[in-house]
């Protein structure tokens, strides 16, 4: 599995409240959620609206701080974010991303290595995150989690489950 995109940089402890505000959580349509991303952080919002696509978010520590709202990764994915590479994640956000087929990778040091706007590649088969300025080796994604990613997310696993029961 390999994903490439342009780095969009963020700092530490970006919260799910930052990504999508509580007042929009009654919305379940990803496209509609995407229209409201980062409204609680106007300075980030104005930057990401102009960001070059496809977007790879590169951030520091504690990304996805806060709520279990799956609306956050759904909105980012629908907005055009292809992957999120960070120094560290908060756990529910990490799970929610994987479950929706949004590649989420912990690569300690990535925030220092990668520059805004440059091309970044995440290659799970080789176990690396690469940019023009260097390479970071990432730990192996556990088999169980990789299985979910390769299926396209837990949603897809559920879809297959439904199919097999119907047969």
């Amino acid at each position: 599995m390999r994903v490439t995109g342009y780095a969009f940089k963020l700092g530490d402890n970006i919260s799910t409240d930052d990504i999508i505000a509580g007042r929009y959580l009654y919305i379940t349509d990803p496209g509609e959620l995407a229209m409201h991303i980062f409204e609680n952080r106007p300075e980030i919002r104005s930057r990401i609206l102009r960001a070059r696509r496809p977007i790879v978010i590169v951030a520091g520590r504690g990304f996805g701080y806060g709520s279990s709202r799956e609306h956050a990764p759904l909105a980012l994915k629908a907005f055009g974010v292809k992957a999120i590479v960070v120094d560290s994640f908060h756990r529910i956000f990490y799970r929610n991303s994987i479950n929706n087929g949004l590649l989420a990778v912990e690569a300690p040091g990535v925030h220092d290595l990668v520059e805004e706007g440059e091309m970044v590649t995440i290659d799970l088969d080789r176990g690396v995150v690469e940019s023009s300025r260097g390479i970071i080796h990432i730990g192996e994604v556990p088999g169980y989690v990789r299985g979910i990613l390769e299926a396209g997310g837990l949603r897809e696993v559920l879809r297959r489950l439904a199919g097999s029961q119907r047969v």
């Binding site: 279990s68 529910i92 799970r95 929610n96 479950n99 169980y144 989690v145 696993v157 559920l158 489950l161």
Partner: peptide, 20 residues
């Protein structure tokens, strides 16, 4: 512990979930 919505749907379908 907290989980996401897709995971809640998965538990309703399978009665189980993975955890680290």
């Amino acid at each position: 512990t907290g989980i996401g919505s897709t995971e809640a749907a998965y538990i309703m379908a399978r009665g189980e979930l993975w955890l680290k």
